[in-house]
């Protein structure tokens, strides 16, 4: 099963895509993914029910979050209500160690994203802050990466023995599915996704068309 693990909808302040249009786009353009995960910035979208859309388009539509730490941005998969009380998702200076620890404690998993990006990625902070402990997975392919950003992410993951995922980081409809993650089995919900990530059997893939 192939999921784009990093996408934003109009629920994010810089997101411009409606979820229905993501679904229409994936089917119209025959994008090779089976679903996507909405990782809205600094929040967890409790309210939206994408079940009917998922059924209509036969796609998995899962919900997660993208929070902000001193090491840059971090995707949190498997968010449930208690975790949103343990962490202030709107805080732009969350300590990464706390995000990792609380995620673990509440059955979620935290994955630093676009690590090669200036300011908001981990690589820029490792020299000053050191390599963080507790990270197991890094986003190594990001659809919005420029220059050597993905390469820097892959080098960091490789040096630390971390695994890599891929996500488009789409903010507009036509960018969905540029990068994704292939899993060996089916994933129906957020719990399955956490389990699949913990099983450590996945690979990041990219369909980015760069020259």
């Amino acid at each position: 099963m192939i999921l784009d693990l990093h996408a934003h909808s109009v629920k994010s302040d810089d997101g411009r895509a409606k979820v229905r249009n993501y679904c229409q786009w994936i089917r119209k353009k025959e994008i090779g993914i089976d679903g996507f995960v909405l990782t809205e910035h600094r929040q967890f979208d409790r309210e939206s029910d994408y079940g009917p859309l998922a059924a209509e388009f036969d796609l998995a539509i899962l919900k997660a979050s993208e929070v902000e730490t001193e090491y840059g941005h971090v995707l949190v998969f498997g968010v449930r209500e208690p975790l949103t009380h343990a962490l202030d998702f709107a805080d732009i200076r969350l300590p990464l160690a706390r995000v990792l620890e609380e995620s673990d404690r509440h059955g979620a998993i935290a994955v630093p994203c676009h690590p090669g990006r200036t300011r908001v990625g981990m690589c820029a902070h490792v020299e000053a802050l050191g390599v963080p402990t507790g990270v197991r997975i890094l986003e190594v392919l990001n659809g919005g990466s420029r220059g050597r950003e993905d390469q820097a992410a892959q080098e960091l993951a490789s040096a630390q023995g971390w695994l890599g995922i891929g996500g488009s980081d789409a903010h507009i409809v036509s960018h969905i599915g540029r990068c994704a993650t292939r899993f060996p089995g089916p994933i129906a919900d957020e719990g399955d996704l956490v389990e699949a990530l913990r099983a450590e059997e996945f690979e990041a893939i990219s369909w980015k068309s760069t020259t």
């Binding site: 411009r16 249009n21 919005g144 220059g147 507009i172 036509s174 980015k208 760069t210 020259t211």
Partner: peptide, 18 residues
């Protein structure tokens, strides 16, 4: 609604929008 992208010659998105 139109997705808009302004890319450089390396295919990197510099400006996006709708």
């Amino acid at each position: 609604e139109i997705d808009l992208t302004l890319e450089n010659e390396a295919g990197e998105t510099r400006v996006l929008g709708t």
